[in-house]
Design a protein around this nucleic acid. Sequence first.
RNA 1: GGUCCCAUCGUCUAGCCCGGUCUAGGACACUUGGUUCUCAUCCAAGAAACUCGGGUUCAAAUCCCGAUGGGACUACCA
Length: 506
Amino acid sequence: MSDIIRVRFAPSPTGLMHIGNLRAALFNFLFARHGKGTFILRIEDTDKTRYVPESLPNILEALDWYGLNVDEGPFMDSNGKVAERGDSGPYTQSKRLPIYRRYANELVEKKVAYPCFCTPERLEQVRHEQSKRKEAPRYDKRCRVMDLVERERNIKSGIPMVIRLAMPTSGITEFNDLIRGTVKFENSSIDDQVLLKSDGYPTYHLANVVDDHLMRISHVIRAEEWLPSTPKHLVLFKAFGWNPPHYAHLPMILGNDRTKLSKRHGAVPALNYRDLGFLPQAVVNYIALLGWNPGGERESYSVSELVDLFSLNKVNKAPSIFDLQKLIWMNGIHIRSMSPEQLVPYVRWFLSKLPSDEYDVDDATVAKVLTVIQDRIPTLADIAQWGSFYFKRKISYTKGELANLGKEPVRSSSPTDSTKKTEEALKFALNVLEGVSNLTFTPLELRENFMKMMQAEGKVNKDVLPFLRYTISGSTVSADVFDMMACLGKERTLKRVEEALMILRT
RNA sequence: GGUCCCAUCGUCUAGCCCGGUCUAGGACACUUGGUUCUCAUCCAAGAAACUCGGGUUCAAAUCCCGAUGGGACUACCA
């Protein structure tokens, strides 16, 4: 076996790319890049009945969003059409049907496979009877022992048939899984799998083996659910006289209830995380650490660091549970580690979703706003709420709401008292703000001025700042008041305070 | 039912291969405190695990066996 690394991510286009797919893709990608190898995308569309046309564009978009660039295989060209690159194509199995047929015939000639004429109904019944007798449900090998004359006759008369693998009835098949070590299977316990269906399409098992060989795949890195069918694949490799690739079976990602991740478990489609406001590098970082750990105590890694450190023998054997809480935390880490300018492209989409009659999103100032709120947004989607002090055209509140701010928490004061208190605070603020020059309207300067003046008048923060916060942001929960005011600029800040005072006087 | 895989805090994990340095470390979440005009960030502290039973050994989270538990597979699906 050559030491050139070629790996593939081989999804079947039966639905949207989900987290499990993403994980398989990511580990293949990391392994390929780490070993300076080739990362191949292969589309396993051999089940016509489950084919979903939107699936492939979704897979390509997801790979692109997460930065898992494919070296060979389908890609979206500049016209938005699916094209393929690489010299081992086609990379879409439905375009390789003659190849599989040829190899299936070769297996029949070698007597490693045989035609089977059993109807689905008969198979169903055989299985039914077996399970009634508490036996393992499996094909009873009736057509395997059919005499050649009858077989020829059946073929000639055009009875629908499939090609089945003639699994050895004795001996064991063992292999060294790169993650799990030696795994052994009793050949006699394995069914005579269908290799070529009656519609001329191959099953996964045939297509997989043929393509992995033809595409010179060096390492098959796939989910653990494939572990039990690996001996079938090995038997096929042996029958063809080919060298099998190395195998590595990844532990599964489970939902909170410890079962296979499915729709019930929340935002499973991989691109949903984009729409929920997660950074691709945060998701990649999180997923990489689910079932893999380079050792040590670090949690935050860039993609290139992951590539440098990645190795299959550090992959865990046990399945892991997807924890959205930790992803959210990690997203925050990545958001805070980036500059506002770097964040802008990711944030734009969320801002574009805001109603334009209420929000005024000025592209040029997004970065400025981000510096103010970057520390407190766990996801990019939160920019709408936290940035609204700036983007919202009009901060609206009623007189009552403003007055309410003046209420003492303990002893309740009369409405007039609380209105007065609010008014007093805002008048004070207005006065201070007017004293700060346009040029020095910075958080630091503002803070100093306010502190100085408050001290002079015997006021404490609580007497002024909550009122100002509400006036500026329209919320009792917001970013730093001074940061917000500096971000807004003197003119807009003054306008808001003045407007609030006017409302109070009505 | 059969086959295979797996097993450290609620969760992600370090340690396991090459037994002693483990009164088992880190992180998320949780609780408490500090910083603070709010919410976050940040800082400090706390609670929280080697599934069980045998064996090997002077010594086992680490090696072996078994049980239990969980998961995957068991289709003319991948």
